[in-house]
């Protein structure tokens, strides 16, 4: 990773980087110029005596015209260049593969044209253009992958699109860039760019390539639950160290008796936890906002079991 701009991992990065470089050269030039002149004048014309002679210069049309025209030309070049690169960002090729994206407080859901779904992990194939069709279930979110140089706000009530062709195999951070509430900074996901072979295997459902799935068959349910806790966005709202974030903390949750909004109370056991994951608003604990989305169809029964096992370990 270079120090000033992240590595480029999409077809769009190069043109964005080129214009960025141009703007940077222009900016550095003018910054150095102005600073140097300022410092030079400050030294040369510093007040040495009270009656130092000064020149009576009020204006100079030639100089003023020149330094109005030069920035104007440069700015127009930057505008035009930025626009050209922007057009590329905005216009996906026809052959792009579509992926549906749902952003909600505070997780990402991806649905592929094969019907496969994934949560907080976007799988794409190297060198194959992808078109994301994105909607939000609640407030404005923004899809941002720094290495791809793409960003698009996702609005509730309409579809937004974004496209890119990943050029490098690897895992890249996907960040929510539009402030969306208390879980905003935890609304992170990853984009997994797979080689064509790996992608084909993944599509077939043979997920052995996938570290998480691999772990699923070889680790205890509680450990699997721990991974799910961070991958599936639970951590945005539920702490494991007793802090109150948005929802109740998981620490010492199992076996506790919670007071509900309707005045009754409930013992937190396996069934209550399962119900709360699938139907969060069925039994609301007193004093918490009804913001949790349902994980029905997102987390399998097996995964819910793993999560419950994990919660049980948090004492």
């Amino acid at each position: 990773m270079s120090t000033w701009i992240p590595e480029s991992a999409s077809n769009l990065a190069a043109s964005v980087d080129n214009i960025t470089l141009f703007v940077t050269i222009v900016s550095v030039f003018f910054f150095v110029l102005i600073s140097a002149v300022l410092v030079a004048f400050s030294i040369k014309y510093r007040r040495k005596s009270e009656d130092q002679e000064t020149a009576y210069i009020t204006h100079n049309p030639v100089i003023e015209t020149i330094w109005t025209i030069i920035p104007t030309i440069l700015l127009m070049v930057i505008f035009a260049w930025g626009w050209i690169a922007f057009k590329e960002l905005r216009n996906p090729p026809a052959e792009a593969i579509e992926v549906n994206v749902v952003a909600k407080q505070w997780l990402w859901e991806f649905e592929y044209f094969t019907g496969k779904k994934s949560l907080n992990e976007l799988f794409v194939q190297q060198n194959k253009p992808v078109r994301l069709i994105m909607r939000s279930d609640d407030v404005i979110h923004s899809f941002f992958v720094p290495q791809f140089r793409v960003k698009q706000d996702i609005l509730p009530g309409s579809y937004q699109q974004l496209w890119f062709t990943p050029t490098k195999v690897g895992t890249f951070d996907l960040l929510c860039a539009e402030y969306c509430g208390s879980g905003h900074s935890k609304m992170l996901a990853t984009v997994k760019v797979l080689s064509p072979e790996a992608f084909a295997r993944w599509e077939k459902g043979d997920e052995l390539e996938d570290g998480a799935a691999l772990a699923a068959i070889s680790v205890s349910p509680a450990e699997r639950g721990k991974d799910l806790y961070s991958q599936r966005g639970c951590l945005a709202c539920h702490s494991i160290d007793g802090k109150e974030v948005i929802g109740p903390t998981f620490k010492n949750l199992y076996g506790k008796t919670e007071d509900l909004e309707d005045g009754s109370s409930v013992l937190v056991d396996e069934n209550y936890l399962r119900e709360s994951i699938y139907e969060p608003e069925a039994k609301m604990v007193k004093g918490y906002p009804p913001t949790m989305p349902s994980f029905k169809g997102i987390l399998s029964e097996e995964e819910v079991t793993a999560l419950i096992e994990y919660i049980k370990t948090l004492k």
Binding site: F31, S35, G82, I84, A85, E178
Partner: peptide, 21 residues
């Protein structure tokens, strides 16, 4: 001057996409 010049980055469309927010 720094503030103004960096504003040019944000005015340039494609660059703003990366730097926005």
């Amino acid at each position: 001057t720094v503030g103004g010049l960096t504003g040019v980055y944000l005015g340039a469309l494609a660059v703003d996409v990366h730097l926005h927010d």
